[in-house]
Design a protein around this nucleic acid. Structure first.
Lengths: 191, 191
DNA sequence: AAAAAACCTTAACAAATGATAAGGAAATCA
DNA sequence: TGATTTCCTTATCATTTGTTAAGGTTTTTT
């Protein structure tokens, strides 16, 4: 049951069988098909989601109606609007399914219960955020202030597998460039 | 002693007098003057630093010799290369003093000791990373893929005080634009 | 106080990127 | 299967942003 979640937990902490069961029992699974929404902007984030299978992405819509991809989520990744989840304020993000999914969802109450009662769960969360922060800073360093071609080549190097699972125009948006620019760059890079 | 550090700790967790003393005892203070370096690229990050007083900034140098400001650090903020600190691999960042500083430094051994022995310290760290992640994602959303003018106005709104403490060319670099572009934008904005 | 360095702005020009539109391929749907 | 939608590329033109260089102010150093 939930092999991907268990694998992720065990990569960071050691758990007794009881602790493992207590954690798993708090997750509620949910199946979603391509193009369904896991979350819509304006709603308060009730649940964080762990992607057990499939792929999703989140995006925001700016004042001119343009969409900006914020993050992707594949097996073993968490997805959700942390800001909205912890503050219980309305979210500006949409989360849409790219490949039919099984996600495991967790409410704020469940999260806080686990933090209080299962010390290794808190350790897992600390390491999760710590790694997420380092990865995100890496994203900033590999995109902000660099020419589009450089952003592309660094992304290619780091996440080659994403190209086979995500449409190019979403990758372009994630990089902060237009699909047309991405196309131009790829043409150059191929020669 | 270390009023800023204590204030930051108490904002997130409650500590007994003994716990507080145990935490504080692990920090080693260090005074630095303007333009001194807290850290140089190529070195392994031996210590994370908490800014008790003053201001610093970190930057990386790309393959063409261009510098990119990665983050600023003011009173109450942490500064350092988390990646290098936790992996003990050489860092690509430089950290330079903007305003004469008192920083409180912590080794990886001290950090791990506190995590093991003082549960609220781990909670503090979890919340610290959690908030840092949310703030950083906010930075990404407020810069990546937006026109320079939009990046500027959002930055202005969020961190107005930084303009009075940091040279504009460093702010431009932080935003991922050139000083010349920033100057142009400010001229427009003033009219 | 004088000299040097750092910082900011401006102008002119070059380069990169965005916007729009069109065509065709690929994937999805009925 | 045939129709529809989504996706990617390409071309053209407009706009934004970068580059370089110069001048002047402010700050720092001697």
């Amino acid at each position: 049951m939930y092999p991907v979640l268990l694998h992720e937990l065990h990569k960071k902490v050691t758990l007794s069988a009881e602790q493992e069961a207590a954690i798993v029992s708090q997750f509620v699974p949910k199946k979603l098909k391509k193009r369904q929404f896991l979350h819509q902007e304006g709603d308060v984030t009730q649940r964080m989601s762990f992607v057990e299978k499939g792929a999703v992405y989140s995006y925001s819509t700016d004042t001119h109606g343009a969409q900006h991809v914020v993050q992707f989520g594949f097996e073993g990744w968490w997805i959700g609007d942390l800001y909205s989840f912890f503050t219980q304020k309305p979210s500006r993000l949409n989360i849409e399914v790219l490949e039919s999914c099984e996600v495991l969802t967790l409410t704020l109450e469940s999260h806080e219960l686990l933090l209080k009662t299962i010390p290794p769960y808190e350790t897992y969360m600390r390491l999760l955020y710590q790694n997420a922060y380092v990865a995100l800073l890496n994203r900033v360093e590999n995109s902000l202030g660099l020419p589009a071609e450089e952003i592309y080549s660094r992304f290619m190097e780091q996440y080659p597998f994403i190209f086979s699972r995500v449409p190019l125009h979403l990758i372009a948006s994630y990089m902060g460039i237009t699909p047309v620019t991405l196309s131009r760059i790829r043409k150059q890079a191929a020669s």
